[in-house]
Nucleic acid binder design. Sequence first.
DNA 1: TGTAGTATCCAAAACGTTTTGGATTGGAGA
DNA 2: TCTCCAATCCAAAACGTTTTGGATACTACA
Lengths: 335, 335
Amino acid sequence: MSSIRTLAGSLGLSITTVSRALDGYSDVAAATRERVRKAADEVGYRPNATARRLRRGTGETVAFVMPTEPGRFYEPVFAEQLAAIGEHLSQHHHDLVLLAARPGADEAALYRRLVEGRRADAFIVVRTRRDDERVHYLQQMGVPFICHGRTDSAAPYAYIDGDGEAGFHALTARLIARGHRRIALLSAPTTLMFATRRAAGWRKAMAEAGLLATLMAEGPHTEEGGHTLASRFLALAERPTVMICATDRMAVGAMRAIENAGLKVGHDIAVTGHDNIPASLYTDPPLTTMELPMREVGQRLAEMVMMRLGGADIRDLQEVRPLVQHPRASSGEGA
Amino acid sequence: MSSIRTLAGSLGLSITTVSRALDGYSDVAAATRERVRKAADEVGYRPNATARRLRRGTGETVAFVMPTEPGRFYEPVFAEQLAAIGEHLSQHHHDLVLLAARPGADEAALYRRLVEGRRADAFIVVRTRRDDERVHYLQQMGVPFICHGRTDSAAPYAYIDGDGEAGFHALTARLIARGHRRIALLSAPTTLMFATRRAAGWRKAMAEAGLLATLMAEGPHTEEGGHTLASRFLALAERPTVMICATDRMAVGAMRAIENAGLKVGHDIAVTGHDNIPASLYTDPPLTTMELPMREVGQRLAEMVMMRLGGADIRDLQEVRPLVQHPRASSGEGA
DNA sequence: TGTAGTATCCAAAACGTTTTGGATTGGAGA
DNA sequence: TCTCCAATCCAAAACGTTTTGGATACTACA
């Protein structure tokens, strides 16, 4: 029944010695250690994770709560990131537990349940909002966490984020240099931090060129959202010559609206996105975009969680990464 | 320190009574139960999950191992399914732990670690293969699991699957009825069970119409894979008038290859896919596809796992679901 | 020979619950 | 008054580890 007990029994050793042999302590003879290791291998003994966790006082568990909105709103980006996080954490013998909740009451209750029941000893917080109650709560409870994205918190917190502001600034400046003047921004909801940052980059480049940053609208960051906002801009008397979209999914919707209006993307109107989703290479024409490589982010997120759990200082766990630009034909650039 | 102990102490009750009060046993007075409940609420007491699991002997944990291939190969479909599973499991106070491994040695080692260390008491197995060692292993160890997709196992196993065979059969028959004769299949690797099933449906419809099912090629189910296979078919002397793709991502790649060759999708050549990814509505023209709704599958998968853990018979947990067809302009159908 | 030091092992406590098997009390019925 | 039963509570065991604080035997050295 009790696994380490039977193993110890069959070897004529105490469970203490078996435990210490397998953990590589120096106070067990090399010969004994080998004997124990071999026997454990043979019977496929592996310490019961729950018991070890209880004794050690650590759950060895990191929680990832997916924000799910009602309706079709999944983030393709999550899958790749999750795979990277899971892969990396399991190398450190930690489990990634995945939960899902709609932002709001459900989400708050879930966080409380996880923290109070000690079901997770660290969190990864994604899709950060400008005023983010998840961050407030975790700070207040003193639970370690790493954000993917920034927030408007006064107290310091650990994060990794793509430099969306610099990315959109560079993109906008590039397009202005190519002669564009009426540059519209199709933004995601600005309660989301990433949308705010990207908008700031666009606005800054416009200001530097002495252009008015008036052509901005925000909506859901889906194909449909992009389609709706683009249609609105197309109806203008003086329509924009560029539509900068907050995400590739929005850009796909915008491209469709433009073509439906009998115009040619990349010729009559430039379109750009963000994320470099696989399909962006296969739109017609290929979509100009930029990205923060999700595998790397996932891996780094996992590393940062482990460092935080190891006691690393929050201030050493704040990273802003440059985005990789992919200029393509949808903005009259690239191949 | 010890949470239930302090709570009991502050109430002047034994920990037994506190525990039973919170669990709703009938041998504690109604008044006491209320008193305990209120006190627990006030101090935010929640039983330590690890301790409860150890005592109860159940990990309350379901594992989901994502198959990750090297290179860019994420499945957008996973994210939505995972969200649904996570949401549903957590209602039953179970955790979904997410791991990732490349099919092969890594994957086998991971399964062993999970099972032997009792880190999971049930599994969800996705992207099933015709000869699937994960299924063999779990059957042999007697660990409960549910497959998304079928496999060639002799022993019974629990699964939920879309009826890809019927779906591709219906689609092919529909296109034959519209006058098509040279119908090509752009298949995913046939080691994957879903690819085999879909191919079977296509082949059957061709046979019923007395047509030769020779135009078939297989490759990675990505945009690039679809592009490559489509290019190959376009080089044929007598090129196909339909390209049925195993997935929407392949279809997106195929559409691009066709347009690059100066042909018009939906007019010169019909293209179809499978998955109904959000972008499929926004390709030009909109992509004919079909789907097994992932939210429903995720939820059902979670339910089935709970039933299996509750001792339900495997034979009652085998479901094949019809696909929802979405005929659109890429095959000259729909709006 | 005695003693200190080292190498190797182990019994028992602890982690925070749930559950088992009573113990105690008070009231109803004889 | 005594017995029995129901209602309410509780002490202690158990879950399977890890860790603490020795115990034992052997070696080396004086």
